[in-house]
């Protein structure tokens, strides 16, 4: 009898999410019924599209890779009560830095150069987010606002480099030169764009769990996040944990950007990482900041994205309709996740 109770408890706990999902999907169906002249086909592709062939399926997983990294980045910051709203800029900077390093070493060994490029992206992202942590420690400025402002400025700067000094005039797109092909990450699911970095993403998530729950820093970080006064009382270096989680969060964002270049785009196109930062926040919210749950949450986001793309391709769903439908789902689910998150905050406060 007690076993039974446990299962029901789980269902109740997930009930909020399931209800929201159902409502979101219902709204999608209604929207499509209203806006599409071949609704059955549209709905079919919207929901089943990502699974109808290897290509779509692999692409969906590929889209989830950077989201796993950014989602983890947000989650680790959240667990220590730090809010990183600068994900967009950090990811974009990571993408540019990786590209620049690869362009700068056109002949280097793929592994050595690639790893260097990724490390540079990690450092870049970490630096940008770390700044906000530093300002918070030094002057108590809210990292939420400062990270957002810094990120906005960074986006401008990256755009300047892409359209200015690094612009490839022989390419008709707004983009830098392409990196050479020894840096390309291995494709593991042709013909889709899915590359080997998904393995890295999963490993990173597992490492994050290990880090947060088994290591000294993870423990201190969580304690500082859960109760700052308690941590101070217990002799933890509370101010260090204003910077460190931000560094880590920024590093993961930079990594997301770098991997996107080496795995998918091979050149830093304008707005190449657009949306990865914001969606990372939503992913982390849905995952309730649990690093392992970030993986399904990111895949879910990618699923919605892939569904919209499939519906656009195979039915009369237009770009605008797809965008509306996508945002309805995103907003509903994010709002629900945010709601439970805030409720949880309130209870623990």
């Amino acid at each position: 009898m007690i076993r039974l109770k446990k299962t029901s408890e789980i269902i109740i706990n997930s009930a909020g999410l399931i209800i929201t999902l159902t409502v979101a999907f219902l709204i999608v169906v209604i929207l499509i019924l209203l806006l599409s002249s071949e609704p059955v086909k549209s709905i079919y592709y919207f929901f089943a599209g990502p699974f109808i062939n290897k290509y779509y399926f692999g692409n969906m997983l590929n889209v989830s890779i950077p989201l796993i990294f950014t989602g983890l980045g947000i989650a680790v910051a959240f667990t220590s009560a730090n809010f990183n709203l600068g994900g967009e800029g950090q990811t974009y900077a990571g993408a540019l830095i990786t590209t620049v390093v690869c362009l700068w070493l056109p002949q280097a060994n793929g592994y050595v150069g690639g790893i260097l490029a990724i490390i540079a992206a990690i450092i870049g992202g970490a630096f940008l987010a770390g700044l906000s942590g530093y300002f918070k420690m030094k002057w108590g400025t809210s990292e939420l606002i400062s990270s957002f402002l810094i990120s906005s400025a960074v986006i401008f700067i990256v755009n300047y480099f892409i359209t200015g000094p690094l612009d490839d005039p022989s390419n008709n797109l707004l983009t830098t030169y392409a990196i050479s092909d020894q840096y390309f990450l291995m494709k593991i699911f042709p013909p889709s764009r899915l590359d080997i970095s998904i393995v890295l993403a999963v490993i990173t998530a597992i490492l994050m769990v290990f880090f947060l729950f088994r290591t000294h820093w993870g423990y201190e970080m969580r304690m500082c996040g859960l109760n700052r006064e308690f941590s101070r009382y217990g002799g933890l270096n509370v101010s260090a944990y204003m910077i460190f989680p931000m560094l880590l969060s920024g590093a993961l964002h930079g990594l997301a950007g770098g991997i996107s270049i080496l795995g998918t785009y091979y050149m830093c196109l304008k707005d190449v990482t657009a949306g990865m930062g914001w969606n990372g926040i939503a992913v982390a919210l849905i995952a309730k900041n649990n690093p392992l749950a970030v993986i399904p949450a990111a895949v879910f986001f990618a699923y919605i994205d892939a569904g919209a793309k499939a519906a656009m391709l195979h039915s009369d769903v237009t770009f605008e309709i797809a965008a509306i439908v996508q945002s309805v789902i995103f907003y509903l689910i994010t709002a629900q996740a945010l709601y439970t998150f805030l409720k949880y905050r309130k209870r623990t406060a």
Binding site: I10, N13, S14, A293
Partner: peptide, 9 residues
Amino acid sequence: QKNLRIIFF
């Protein structure tokens, strides 16, 4: 419990 929730998801 959290893990279970993930699986459920």
